[in-house]
Design a protein around this nucleic acid. Structure first.
Length: 291
DNA sequence: CTGTCCCTGATT
DNA sequence: AATCAGGGACAG
């Protein structure tokens, strides 16, 4: 699912085809809670706006527009952003949940799950936002006004420090895994990278946050940054629906050590990886390597 | 703080 | 036909 690395890969690949172009067409599906800003209003706000920059904060993408307003995009669980031509007569979904092959992506055509399509004045591909489960978000904010959901975020996980995690941990007796998933603590960490970071830091997912030492907090944040930086290089994790904007899979799913490896041998000690449900999320860990 | 809900496709 | 997966807002 899209977490910080996947959103960052998306940002990097989308920026060159989005920034500097002027929006001249906006197509949407019907009003739904996917559109925090209703489609009708969205069209009105976006039309004739030039995109000045594409930023990322946590798992949010923020497109800065030339009238100082901002378009927020969140990929939720199954969100996919594509940059592609609009030539294909039909959408060819590859088998199962594997999303789109590169050939298909280059000639992407919308299906019922494609909720937003942006067209531009300048030459180049269209932008497609597809999201099967509609846990993603599209929201527009007027110049000077901030997004409530963005304001609530803690430091971006790539810039955070062990001290910040340690301080947040003191007040909590919840499992450290829950703490890592809290976007108000470290923005951008999700289920995959929380498990991977805790494995590298050798801390069990169910350890109470206030029982995690200062040194371990340092190790956890360093580990999170290490796995996320590596994931960005490989194009992110294509475990459920995530694909890069050109339709190709990322590569980090092949490097994960614990996530969705229940019962498989630990890469370090061969002990079977175990699974626990914490905060309604599956959590994976090595019972021997992690204390 | 925990539980519920949104949604749809895959799995049981 | 019922259950599961899960990010995040919200209610309790």
């Amino acid at each position: 699912m899209p977490e910080l690395p996947e959103v960052e890969v998306t940002r990097r690949k989308l920026s060159p085809v989005l920034v500097g172009r002027t929006i001249t067409s906006v197509e949407t599906t019907r009003k739904s809670y996917f559109f925090i800003t209703p489609p009708q209003q969205l069209k009105q706000r976006l039309l004739d706006r030039r995109v000045e920059a594409l930023d990322r904060v946590g798992k949010y993408l923020l497109a800065r527009l030339d009238d100082e307003s901002t378009l927020l995009l969140h990929l939720g669980m199954t969100g996919q952003l594509f940059a592609a031509g609009a030539l294909s007569p039909r959408l060819l979904l590859a088998k199962g949940k594997r999303a789109l092959t590169p050939e298909v992506a280059r000639t992407f055509s919308p299906d019922a799950h494609t909720h937003l399509i942006l067209g531009f004045r300048e030459a180049g591909p269209l932008i497609y936002f597809r999201d099967v489960r509609k846990f993603g978000k599209v929201e527009w904010a007027a110049p000077g006004s901030e997004f409530t959901r963005v304001k609530k975020l803690g430091p971006d996980a790539l810039a955070a420090t062990g001290v910040q995690l340690f301080e947040a941990a003191q007040a909590r007796s919840t499992p450290v895994k829950s703490l890592l998933l809290d976007q108000g603590v470290l923005a951008g960490v999700g289920n995959i990278y929380a498990d991977e970071a805790l494995f590298l830091a050798k801390v069990r997912v169910d350890r109470r946050a206030n029982r995690v030492t200062r040194a371990e907090c340092d190790a956890i944040v360093r580990a999170a940054q290490k796995v996320m930086r590596r994931s960005i290089v490989t194009g992110g994790s294509s475990i459920s629906d995530y694909v890069q904007p050109d339709g190709t899979d990322g590569g980090y799913q092949n490097e994960r050590r614990v996530y969705a490896r229940t019962g498989e041998p630990c890469k370090t000690c061969r002990t079977p990886i175990e699974r626990l449900v914490i905060a309604q999320r599956s959590s994976h860990f090595c019972p021997r390597c992690q204390k």
